[in-house]
Simulated assay, not measured.
Amino acid sequence: MNDFDALQAVVRRHAGERQAEQRVCEAFLNALYHALRTASGPGLPLNNVTLDLTPDPEARLRPPPPGGWHAAWLRLGLCEVLVRVRREEGAFVGEYGPDGTFHLARVSEDDLTLLARRLLRDVAAIYAGDASPRPGAPLN
């Protein structure tokens, strides 16, 4: 088997793992979208929030290898923020905007709401000129 054939074989062999990881990461991004829609509290849905799943703009390999990033543009009214997420040792690790990061060991509705509110505050601070880099401390 030559090197090219070996590459094709390993890509095929891990296709199921990659697809499962992609589905899980896309489900997380969708759940974050729903958390953003309800971040203002019960009965106060934000109707001008949309989700657009997209290939990770920083990806250097397609399809992404196991552990690779998955991305979505979240439109928050007048602005959009790119959110990237990947699985790392069972946790969701992600980035948003120019320097926002997060780490979720578990994903509950409350955890997603906390993340959504933090994301909204951080993006507002960027536009207000008050942004300072925040460490990616775990939310839970």
Rank of each mutant, 00 (worst) to 15 (best):
G16Q: 14
G16T: 10
G16R: 14
E17T: 14
E17G: 10
R18V: 11
R18N: 01
R18E: 11
Q19D: 13
Q19A: 15
A20N: 08
A20R: 12
E21R: 09
E21Y: 10
Q22K: 04
Q22Y: 07
Q22W: 06
Q22R: 15
R23Y: 06
R23F: 01
R23K: 13
V24M: 11
V24D: 11
V24G: 02
V24C: 05
C25W: 00
C25S: 06
C25F: 01
C25V: 02
E26M: 03
A27E: 13
A27K: 02
F28D: 02
F28T: 00
F28M: 04
F28S: 06
L29G: 04
L29Q: 04
N30R: 12
N30K: 13
A31E: 05
A31F: 02
A31T: 00
Y33K: 03
Y33A: 06
Y33H: 12
H34Y: 10
H34A: 13
H34Q: 14
H34V: 01
A35F: 09
L36I: 08
T38L: 12
T38P: 08
A39F: 00
A39R: 05
S40T: 12
G41K: 09
G41E: 11
G41H: 13
G41R: 11
G41F: 10
P42S: 13
P42V: 14
G43S: 11
G43T: 09
P45G: 14
P45A: 05
P45C: 12
L46Q: 10
L46Y: 03
L46S: 09
L46M: 10
N47G: 15
N47I: 02
N47S: 14
N47P: 00
N48D: 15
N48P: 08
N48Q: 11
V49W: 07
V49H: 04
V49G: 01
T50R: 02
T50L: 00
T50F: 00
L51R: 06
D52K: 08
D52H: 10
L53Q: 00
L53G: 00
L53C: 01
T54F: 08
P55M: 07
P55R: 08
D56H: 05
P57H: 02
E58N: 06
E58D: 15
A59H: 06
A59F: 03
A59T: 01
R60H: 12
R60N: 10
L61W: 13
L61C: 13
R62W: 13
R62K: 12
R62C: 12
